[in-house]
Amino acid sequence: MSIAGRPTLPARVAAPLRLQVVELLREALAAGEYSPGQRLGERELCERFDVSRTVVREALRHLEAEGLVQMVANQGPVVATLTPDEAAQLFEVRGALEALAGESFALRGTAKQKRALRAALVDVEEAMAAGVLADVLVSKDEFYAVLMDGAGNTFINTMLRTIHARVQQLRHLSLGAPGRYHDSVRELRVIVAAIESGDADGARRACVEHVRQAADAALSRLTPTV
């Protein structure tokens, strides 16, 4: 439900309010609702999410630890900025980790995990066919969650979650590139097919290619001043 057009937090969700606000704000940042460098006013966020100032401050501290928010002297919390060079470095690390995740999944993923990955791919395909960016981002997050689970490596999981939190800022750029939805689905299909067949090298190469294409799309739309 919402109040006066504002997203509200469902009472049935058991997670602490802070984590609910973190997730909603993270989604807003990923969707480009707030520009890099834009100030995040506590009063506005309290009104938007219908929570206390304490909850908002806790959520902002959480996002600061993820690198999505920066605290600026005499200004307060602002949306973190990424230079093109920083973004390129981020994609470089993401490519290496996802390649290892795909390779590991192909080597030791269970049949059940592979079915879950196929189902997650179908969700991505449906979301991209509908064309709603927020739904696309959610479906891709789920796809990567299944990919990391299948890798069976806690450290890959932890590091990739941190990287993905930063990459979220760039996804609305990469996915907004002409034809990117179609290309992204094609790339994910190659990854899934390689993992399902147990082709570890193929899965690794497919993951590297997917991240490379995403990086090219995002960096081509990232201005030098960002």
Rank of each mutant, 00 (worst) to 15 (best):
T158F: 12
V167D: 05
R180G: 05
V211F: 01
D199I: 04
L173P: 01
R180N: 08
V208A: 14
I156A: 08
V190C: 03
A206W: 02
G150W: 05
H164T: 10
G198S: 08
T162K: 13
L188T: 01
A151C: 10
H164N: 14
R189Q: 14
A193Y: 05
V190E: 11
T162S: 09
D149Y: 00
A194S: 11
D183K: 01
T162Y: 10
L175D: 13
V167K: 01
L173T: 00
G150L: 09
V211D: 00
G152F: 03
S174P: 01
V192R: 00
H164A: 08
M159E: 12
T154F: 13
T162D: 14
M159I: 11
R180S: 14
S174N: 06
R166Q: 15
I195Y: 06
L160S: 13
A177Y: 09
G176M: 02
A177H: 08
L170D: 02
C207Y: 04
H182N: 08
V208E: 14
L173K: 02
Q168P: 01
E187V: 01
S184P: 07
F155V: 12
H172F: 12
Y181E: 09
N153L: 05
S197Q: 11
R204N: 07
H164P: 04
T158H: 15
R161F: 05
T162V: 10
L173Y: 07
